[in-house]
Design a protein around this nucleic acid. Sequence first.
DNA 1: AATGAATGAGAATTCATTCAT
DNA 2: GATGAATGAATTCTCATTCAT
Lengths: 207, 207, 207, 207
Amino acid sequence: MTSKPANLTRIQSERRDEILSSALEIFSKNGYKGASINKIAQAANMSTPRLLYHFSDKEKLYSDLLSSTLSLWIDPLEFIGQTDDAVEEICNYVRRKIEMSRDYPRESRLFASEILIGIERADDSLFDPLHQIFRDKIELIQRWSNEGKIAPVDPYHLIYSIWATTQHYADFDVQIRTLSPQKMENLFDDAEAFLIPMYTKLLTPSR
Amino acid sequence: MTSKPANLTRIQSERRDEILSSALEIFSKNGYKGASINKIAQAANMSTPRLLYHFSDKEKLYSDLLSSTLSLWIDPLEFIGQTDDAVEEICNYVRRKIEMSRDYPRESRLFASEILIGIERADDSLFDPLHQIFRDKIELIQRWSNEGKIAPVDPYHLIYSIWATTQHYADFDVQIRTLSPQKMENLFDDAEAFLIPMYTKLLTPSR
Amino acid sequence: MTSKPANLTRIQSERRDEILSSALEIFSKNGYKGASINKIAQAANMSTPRLLYHFSDKEKLYSDLLSSTLSLWIDPLEFIGQTDDAVEEICNYVRRKIEMSRDYPRESRLFASEILIGIERADDSLFDPLHQIFRDKIELIQRWSNEGKIAPVDPYHLIYSIWATTQHYADFDVQIRTLSPQKMENLFDDAEAFLIPMYTKLLTPSR
Amino acid sequence: MTSKPANLTRIQSERRDEILSSALEIFSKNGYKGASINKIAQAANMSTPRLLYHFSDKEKLYSDLLSSTLSLWIDPLEFIGQTDDAVEEICNYVRRKIEMSRDYPRESRLFASEILIGIERADDSLFDPLHQIFRDKIELIQRWSNEGKIAPVDPYHLIYSIWATTQHYADFDVQIRTLSPQKMENLFDDAEAFLIPMYTKLLTPSR
DNA sequence: AATGAATGAGAATTCATTCAT
DNA sequence: GATGAATGAATTCTCATTCAT
């Protein structure tokens, strides 16, 4: 999981944050291979050796960045199931995921490219926390489905579908900008106006 | 669309195909930056200069590959609207896109990484043919929506959603393999079993 | 000396001429190293192997070009001494050299870059014909000088100086174009108007 | 003029000097295209990337070398006009240019090949300082000519002729070595003994 | 006589990383 | 702690030349 060193001075942790912020910018725009730690160091206003003092190598920086960002994926998922209104719970999840795409597109693209291209990693436990919660929620949705609180659906594909439709707006941003006549400002509202009814229709149990 | 040279000798077109095949493999796995023409040449059993004899440079190889693959994206779209059963037409499109993800995942990932990371291209008209047909179909779906043949939906977001949900199975393959309990063989059937009802519910006009 | 094969078909010798003409253009503009036989072949509208059929390799092409062009340097020199008016003879030589710079600047630059940069040549007898005539004329001028037909001057430096001042207009063309306010059309006339009086003053014997 | 970075560490300026010295040797002997930074690095006893650490690329190294050498061309020109003896002033310029050819032949050849072959440069302002002073001196000589301090001559062609005759000994060194019977030691003295009377005769106003 | 195809040597970079100060 | 300096491996591409047909 996150291997952030436990005891850091304030300065050290400020530097780490500056670096991670630049790394997010550069990695999400260029992918792992396309990004050079030089450019990242430059964006963070420091020399490369100084960057490497904080993160021992490029791969460490990259995976620390990924794991420090993972909560953005996990958090919205965690909230599912606070209330008993199953359809609404899932729709709220969709809403939160849309917000994420709007507010944190770089993080979304970072993950997308990691999954799409992926680097060989010695330790591939990076996504373990996500997977744990994923399984919990799968179970929850399955229960809801069994109990008739939502229409019967395959919970796996439901979540895949939600991830796909919501993250698409961040990850394929470039294409959508080209194709859409709408201003980007309204785009996410329109997306919500499309997706919420879709999932509502899908999930509302027929009487 | 980069036009494949019209008159090729036998050897040229054989070599081109060998190279493009290896290039698809390597580019889709590693992205543009992560792929070296060395590795591609090696995979195609030839020396790098020999490869470069057939494709003048890396970028040319890459964009020729993209454009030679673009029809896989365009073709299923083109078929929409053969019959008058609007809901069925769109569902069939979904089915075809699922098949594409199953049968041509590398091509799907190639495009995904191009849109996600994208290289600056001198001539960015690569996607023009897709965009043209896209607009045609947007118009068609809008008409269907107006005429009440499908429920009222935003055609843009409908297509984005179809692209997202279907291509997701190819593009995020790695993640899905990890998370899904199903055997991959059934995965695409299950996906279809999930998506077709979803879009049917969404699109069937309420009377 | 010139190693032009003795017996050539008409077609062969036409091809050779086409190639030499393109080679002159490319070599004089880019130097030996900067010129590629590809570009030369292209400029001559033929494939590189076909070019290499006529000239076994790049160096051969280059030195054949040099020797086929050498007469432009030699010819004006050869004429010196037709009449007995020594000053006029030399001035006429200057005039002819100026014409050469005006009419054959590429040839002049080709030689200049050969002397300036020079490639290591197995057989460095290329300039032998020039040197032979050079020595003859040195002798002639020395005699004129001894006989008082021209003012006493070092014949070597006289010829160097004539070469330098006249060829300069072809070889340093780029610089002169930048510095000179005159139109290029008049440039060579102006040069003559400057140089002839200079050499006349220099050479006219004082009584 | 490419500006040498203002603040250099000790090592930086030492390395720069070593590299520039090797670069002068290699570039002046082989021209821009014929010189490889490999050879230059080797001559400077370092690896190519180490060289490239100090000069970002080949062209930068080349143009830094040119501009650092430009003063050799400019300085002798600048001195013209210190005294009022116009003929002597110009003759002294000739003498200084001959010294330059004797003492800095590689620099002279470097410039000659740049003008002769020239590389396309993003910023072609390299020679601006020279051109500025050139124009000043043109004006001065024109004034002298108008005032009768020297015989009436075209100042442009006068300077071209001085450049041509003096630089010739450095630039065409190879040819001169072959043709001249003199030992090289005396060559420059002999050149001076030829050129000074020539320009004196040319410039001395007839009363 | 001619071309398409291929080769191997080198060229100029780039880049993650290390070292010395 | 931090930077300037350097390294070595890899990468893209060029080019003279050769080979097979």
